[in-house]
Design a binder for these strands. Structure first.
Lengths: 198, 198
DNA sequence: ACAATAGAGAACAAAAAGAGAACAGAAAAT
DNA sequence: ATTTTCTGTTCTCTTTTTGTTCTCTATTGT
């Protein structure tokens, strides 16, 4: 599902202030911060974010909370397709895959299905299952899951430029590298392993 | 279809600013950026770009979006350093691996480590672990582990020829298919799945 | 003269955004 | 326990924004 401008704005506000929350914000507080005078109006937007899976309603009357990933006990969550134009967090109920230990890292991982051929030159094909170590930063040259503008999640090689911008390099000779300001790109994990069925 | 001067101008503007978009631009915004005072005028040009396939209209009322830029592929072959024109060995792992059920077939399987780049065009890379279903025959077009003259085991696509001979097709545009009499080639299994660690 | 190109501006339908009232349940205060 | 306050939710209504379509005018090139 696609966010409207205002919804994106509100989500950014939430995401930006998430650290400062000691308690989840109430609707009235958010209305004040966002310059709204009607809770009803805000509620409509929040509901859209909830539908998009970006935000979690809290039990009772305690506002809302940003979605966080929880590590599973058995297996790793399979979060659906990457590069489908949707943020990773958008998938509500992942199913779980059993993956052998040697295919995981020692840190929390999740799995994605690859869509598209942007990494075909290093043997990552459409439909492959990739295991991703959950991380919010990566070293130069690592292959990462990057969320662009909270809209699109893609698998690309990361290049941190000296001017602070970020380049996402596809491994496909027919595709061009893409350049972004740092704040538009959010690393959601790094590639750990790959599974493919024939 | 050919673009007029203004259309090209507008397209360039879109393409140049595409990476700065957090959301698709609205007509009013574009008008302001382009120095137009009438949305109707802009609409005519955008419509031309849409007809030309350079731009994608968006659902609802959320502006336009650049179509993904696909370069006309000149078909430059990948100049890998491939010296060995001979079949490539696939060496069995000495120990046992834990492999999840969904990566196996219902019949006995074993695992091999791929050496070489003969199947690189379908994303099978040097060092990959492949799961092979144990079999002594295969259908045309299946990817098999073939033992040649009881000497070398290779992973190739199988082609049974009408004259009784067998062709082993590498999936690598820089390599040539190899032809053998049937009695020199022994199928040892067919490809089931693939595992790769980064 | 004629056609193609470019722009302005009005009018319209639909979507998005917002305001405000009303309501039920939870928490807090009495 | 009872009342009061606060919170999330739902509803209707209005305003603003946005894409689209239309007519009209100006400019340019052949």
């Amino acid at each position: 599902m696609k966010l409207t401008r205002r919804q994106q704005e509100i989500y950014n506000h939430l995401h930006h202030n998430a650290e400062h929350f000691t308690h989840p914000p109430t609707y009235d507080e958010l209305c004040h911060e966002l310059g709204l005078s009607s809770r009803g109006s805000l509620h409509k937007h929040i509901q859209a974010l909830i539908d998009a899976g970006l935000v979690e309603p809290m039990a009772g009357r305690q506002g809302i909370r940003l979605v966080e990933w929880e590590q599973a006990d058995a297996g790793i969550p399979h979060l659906g397709a990457i590069a489908a134009g949707r943020p990773i967090e958008a998938i509500a109920q992942p199913d779980f895959l059993e993956v052998p230990d040697f295919m995981l890292s020692q840190y929390p991982c999740y799995a994605l299905t690859v869509k598209g051929e942007s990494m075909i030159d290093i043997g990552i094909m459409d439909g492959d299952l990739v295991v991703i170590e959950k991380r919010d930063s990566a070293r130069d040259g690592e292959i990462v899951v990057a969320l662009i503008n909270n809209e699109e999640a893609t698998l690309k090689r990361l290049q941190n430029n000296s001017d602070g911008s970020v380049t996402l390099l596809p491994e496909n000779s027919t595709m061009e590298p893409m350049n972004y300001p740092t704040e538009q790109v959010q690393v959601q994990g790094v590639l750990v392993s790959l599974l493919r069925r024939y």
